[in-house]
Simulated scan of single mutants.
Amino acid sequence: MFQCKDVAEEASNYLEGDLPLRKRIGLFLHLVICSCCRNYLQQIRQTINTIATIHPTEEHQTDTKALAEKLRALSDSESR
């Protein structure tokens, strides 16, 4: 039987339909009895819908190569 922590871990997979049938049924049965998890899933759905509606745009291009180098340098300095 699914527990609340399992719902939190599998929520996005559940919403996207990426769970095997057995897990999907188990999660569904948990949602039938747990109003907190139903609310949690509804909040995630609303967030996804809001983001899909807003279509955020990035104003700045992120230099991923420079960012990776900074993170690597930071990691190296912390490990010393």
Rank of each mutant, 00 (worst) to 15 (best):
M1C: 00
M1N: 00
M1T: 08
F2V: 06
F2N: 00
F2M: 12
Q3S: 04
C4E: 04
K5S: 09
K5R: 02
K5T: 01
V7W: 01
E9D: 01
A11F: 05
A11I: 02
S12I: 08
S12P: 03
N13P: 00
N13W: 02
L15D: 09
E16H: 15
E16V: 15
D18N: 10
D18V: 10
L19T: 10
L19N: 06
P20C: 12
P20G: 09
L21T: 15
R22I: 13
K23W: 09
K23F: 04
R24C: 10
I25Q: 06
G26T: 15
G26V: 05
L27I: 12
F28N: 15
L29K: 14
L29V: 11
L29M: 11
H30T: 09
L31Y: 09
V32P: 07
V32R: 15
V32G: 12
C34G: 02
S35A: 15
S35R: 14
C37F: 07
C37P: 11
R38L: 10
R38M: 07
R38A: 10
N39L: 09
Y40N: 06
Y40T: 04
L41D: 03
L41R: 10
Q42V: 10
I44W: 03
I44R: 01
R45L: 11
Q46C: 11
T47E: 15
T47R: 14
I48L: 09
I48N: 10
N49Q: 12
N49T: 14
N49W: 08
T50L: 07
I51V: 13
A52F: 00
A52K: 12
H55N: 04
H55W: 01
P56K: 10
T57H: 02
E58L: 06
E59F: 03
E59V: 06
H60K: 10
H60N: 08
T62N: 05
T62E: 00
T62Q: 04
T62Y: 00
D63E: 00
D63N: 04
D63V: 00
T64L: 00
K65N: 11
K65S: 06
A66W: 07
L67W: 04
L67M: 08
A68N: 03
A68D: 11
A68R: 12
A68Q: 10
E69Q: 09
K70R: 07
K70V: 15
L71K: 11
L71N: 08
L71Q: 15
A73K: 08
S75Y: 12
D76M: 12
D76K: 03
D76W: 12
E78Q: 12
R80K: 14
R80S: 07
R80L: 14
